[in-house]
Design a binder for these strands. Structure first.
Lengths: 259, 259
DNA sequence: CTCAGGTTGATTGTCTAACATTCAACGTTC
DNA sequence: GAACGTTGAATGTTAGACAATCAACCTGAG
């Protein structure tokens, strides 16, 4: 047992307590990424529980992506580096549930998207390389096909924004953006039908051009223009159905921020 | 079984497959928050596995906060709304591991913090109510005590920024900010010792005053000033030890999760 | 009739023991 | 030396049992 002494467990929620202890141990660096934890049998003995219970504790960690298991002779449970995409999916799930439970509003999601991506386009203009540009352009070009079914078009839209976010070269902002984008379909499925896809394509193209020109101010302006259009369309769509939700329109003015 | 038909499982990773199926079902709204899932025994029969395996699948979901379980007669497994703080903690864990694995740099974390909080202070100035103001002020006042041990002082710093973020009234931005702040101690433990706490307190006070005055521009300026000081201090601290670690912008390739 | 108290059934939590599966390392044989 | 089988260690899965908990139901005293 490498530098880890388990604390005695209370009567309730044994597996949860085991998971918490191991989690803080991992978080504190008792085991480094890639390193092997004690075997299930060893953990069971150390915590004085059955193997099944120790196993459940490990399952909790594995669900969070903190550990992975492998069978076989050199097998065991290893500290893992959580995969960015899976974390983003979990976050998106949480956001969707919050939305359905009424804990977040469409305004919250859009505001977050807007704040985050505003800076991502700026950073993308400063940091993009040729591969980033190619990825962005591909999404722009492919989505000009007006005969495309809506789901495919939405996928391309996501690909476009994802490529921009990636070009900003900040994994944390990328994670946040990805989650928000994954959650958005649930929140704004109301008004996508009413979008003028040709117009959206032009706006995407403008953003792309500014990023290609390494022009952060232009990119921000183009993105603001894009968001403005989305905002107007959504407001109109909502006004037709429920006039009350004009609360959505109270997005504060965006100011240029630069260092 | 309310409107849910399990798909047959492959041979490998049964519990994981069960978790994924249930997860997408929840995400698709097959069961609403608060609603009850089939019992472990029913799920086991439906998926044609033992109860232990079905249970492990549920454990995976419960680790993500998507379900909670209760014993007793009206017990069972229920769709839950993930708790914001727990999600933030998981995210912070992930970020810390990414940092330790070299997948994110100090620059990434600070940049994200800067982007997010910049807007939070602005929004806080526009949306704060009296309770928010009181919470912020309390953190500011308490941290002026120069005899405070460093850990307590750091807690108050976190409380200050948390209160601001909360006043911005956007759960998603709040979640992102909370995670970043929780992860920050791991990334900038290098230079906190060299901060002039009195000066930091003055900067916090300036931010508070601008928010109290409902002055978003002033709040942003005050925050920028604060971040500028932190940035300088960190740069100086890092220069003394290792001059190049300031721009660790190149992302090393993702390593395999276990050997 | 009402209410206190016990019983019961359903459900999750844990334990035990076993078998299945996988994988690397070690020997053995050719 | 290379091919092949054996073994040991670890996780994955199964089966059955018992413990703990809780709501609903039943029962009997007042």
């Amino acid at each position: 047992m490498t530098g880890f002494t388990p604390a005695p467990l209370g009567r309730r929620d044994a597996s949860g307590q085991i998971a918490r202890q191991l989690r803080t141990a991992i978080s504190d660096g008792v085991w480094s990424p890639g390193e092997r934890l004690p075997s299930e049998a060893e953990l069971a003995e150390a915590f004085d529980v059955s193997r099944a219970t120790a196993r459940e504790g490990l399952k909790l960690l594995s669900a969070m992506g903190l550990v992975v298991s492998a069978r076989g002779s050199n097998g065991g449970t290893f500290v893992a580096v959580p995969d960015s995409e899976e974390v983003a999916e979990q976050l998106a799930d949480a956001i969707q549930l919050w939305y359905r439970a009424g804990n977040v509003s469409v305004r919250d999601v859009d505001e977050a998207r807007w704040v985050l991506e505003m800076h991502c386009v700026e950073l993308a203009a400063l940091r993009r390389d040729d591969a980033d540009l190619a990825a962005i352009k591909q999404a722009v070009d492919a989505s000009t096909d007006l005969s495309l079914p809506m789901p495919e078009w939405l996928d391309l839209d996501l690909a476009f924004h994802t490529a921009i976010t990636r070009a900003a070269r900040n994994p944390i902002l990328e994670l946040a953006m990805t989650s928000v984008h994954l959650a958005r379909p649930a929140t704004n499925s109301v008004f996508v039908d009413q979008l003028d896809r040709e117009r959206v394509s032009q706006q995407h193209e403008a953003i792309y051009l500014a990023i290609a020109a390494s022009d952060p101010d232009g990119a921000r302006a183009a993105f603001q223009n894009h968001v403005g259009y989305l905002d107007d369309t959504r407001r109109q769509a909502l006004k037709e159905t429920s006039p009350d939700s004009v609360l959505v329109s109270t997005l504060p003015p965006m100011r240029p921020t630069h260092r």
